[in-house]
Amino acid sequence: MSTLAHTIAVRASGVDMFFGTPENQVVALQQADFEARRGELIMLVGPSGCGKTTLLSVIAGTLTPQAGTVEVFGQRLDGLGQEELTAFRRKHLGFVFQSFNLIPTLTVIENVMVPLLIQGRPFDEAHARSLAIIEKVGLKGREDGRPNALSGGQQQRVAIARALVHEPPLLICDEPTSALDKDTGGHIMELVRDLSRSPERCVVVVSHDHRIFRFADRIAEMEDGRISRVVDDPKLLDSTHL
């Protein structure tokens, strides 16, 4: 196996994804190829409807493509059944959502504990590990409060803590700063970038927010359901096209 193969965290090749009926078909992905490396933060950018979210869902194993192969940290996803995909997500993926998706009736620490409890970890262990990661994202002392008592940036920090508490190798972030102001978004992205600096981890971010492109190691631009180009230096990307 080549050294490059060891560095690849996510690889999607020739992925096709269609929605709707054969008579009224919407093409979301067409022969899409995508690669993300270990230890990097890669952003998926492009205009609305270009297939970013669909590609993210395929990589996350929440959508199964009609054609093509998807491999995440050496695990082929295209042949897995629903239960295996669920188990795969449970172990290998962390999610940061656009609207945080923190459960408002649970406390901060209870929200963070969810992935560990889904894995079947004992409550006490989940509590201790969650407390540690809450401290790491700078929210010590807020663990017993409700999410809606926190600012947007703090809520996104809770979401990041929840995404990382079970130490998944792949972190998927869907528009993580769209609900945040520039400074708060910047702080959040600094945190996410720091988290990506591990050979055992990869961060894939979908974003429209050109203010955060500078945090990416590489940027994959999408157009009409496929990756149109990959830019190694984010400064070279002309955001006016997005």
Binding site: A60, T62, E83, T86, A87, F88, R89, R90, K91, L93, F95, F97, S99, N101, I103, V114, P115, I118, Q119
Partner: peptide, 14 residues
């Protein structure tokens, strides 16, 4: 709570 249940499903809860 549907969107939270969807999130829990996405996170790997069967």
């Amino acid at each position: 709570n549907l969107k939270y249940f969807a999130a829990i499903k996405a996170m790997g809860a069967g």
